[in-house]
């Protein structure tokens, strides 16, 4: 249980305009951990998470996932690594015009041959598994509806189902509840936590709500101005620390 699954060393990200989004971030993640990243908007949370599966290309550093360096992986290798990392987005990012179950099936694309996947030729076993997963996130009745007919919370659960269907060993969730109301947020977070416990996924979630972070996390990482400001278990996250993370630091803030 204490095996290290993800090892990030000296990760840097500089945008072409010179903005330093990530400065020398190092982080070690153990198998099965539920990590919540908090920090003010613009601190680099999102860039950090997206750098892990290279949706955003890092400028330097190493990201060792199961011992393999993601930063150096070529396209084919990157695809293999990506299918092992589920990603959940703030905007759900479902194909709105396709039925829910097809969206869940998309989680299997990384395991299929290019043409079979491109033409959507999913087998009986794959379909049954997708339907099963939908049932587990409480959406068996919505399986054949168009994705855009579902509510926001339901759509995010479909996105979770899609990530589960990748049978990943890690899940990244970038502000999964930022565009949901409090009730839907709770339901989504519950499903995410349950899925991760049941399946043993390692999970990294970006949140801007500190109360949610405290409630769900095993470990909290605070990011500020592109640097790790705090890293520790929930009980070490005192009010002072929170204040310090969210305080506007006049010196470091570019005008």
């Amino acid at each position: 249980m204490m095996e290290t699954i993800l090892e990030i060393k000296h990760l840097n990200k500089t945008y072409p305009d010179g903005t330093e989004a990530l400065k020398d971030i190092s982080l070690s993640v153990k198998k099965g951990e539920f990590i919540v990243i908090i920090g003010p908007s613009g601190a680099g949370k999102s860039t950090f998470l997206r750098s892990i599966n290279r949706l955003s290309e890092p400028s330097g550093g190493e990201i060792l996932f199961h011992g393999e360096d993601i930063v150096k992986a070529n396209r084919a290798k990157l695809r293999k690594i990506r299918r092992n990392i589920g990603m959940i987005f703030q905007g759900f990012n479902l194909v709105k015009r396709l039925p829910t179950v097809r969206n869940v099936l998309h989680g299997k694309l990384g395991y299929m041959s290019t043409w079979k996947g491109a033409l959507g030729l999913f087998g009986q076993e794959e379909v049954e598994e997708a339907l099963d997963i939908l049932e587990r996130v409480g959406l068996e009745k919505q399986a054949f509806k168009r994705a855009d007919e579902l509510s926001g919370g339901q759509q995010q659960r479909v996105a979770i189902a899609r990530a589960i269907n990748q049978s990943p060993s890690m899940i990244l969730a970038d502000e999964p509840i930022a565009s949901l109301d409090p009730n839907a947020s709770r339901v989504v977070m519950d499903y995410l936590q349950k899925a991760c416990r049941d399946e043993g996924f390692t999970t990294i979630v970006n949140l801007h709500q500190v109360d949610f972070a405290k409630e769900y996390a095993d470990r909290i990482v605070g990011i500020k101005n592109g640097e790790v400001y705090f890293d520790g278990p929930v009980h070490e996250l005192t009010e002072d620390v929170i204040k310090a993370i969210y305080a506007t630091d006049k010196e470091a803030m570019p005008v």
Binding site: R79, R82, R83, F89, N93, L109, Y111, T114, Q166
Partner: peptide
């Protein structure tokens, strides 16, 4: 976002275009 979601599931370019 659709493109990003499918790419992060490990889909190839052709799969992203035809499925997403």
């Amino acid at each position: 976002g659709i493109v990003e979601a499918l790419e992060s599931a490990g889909a190839t370019k052709l799969q992203v275009i035809l499925q997403g």
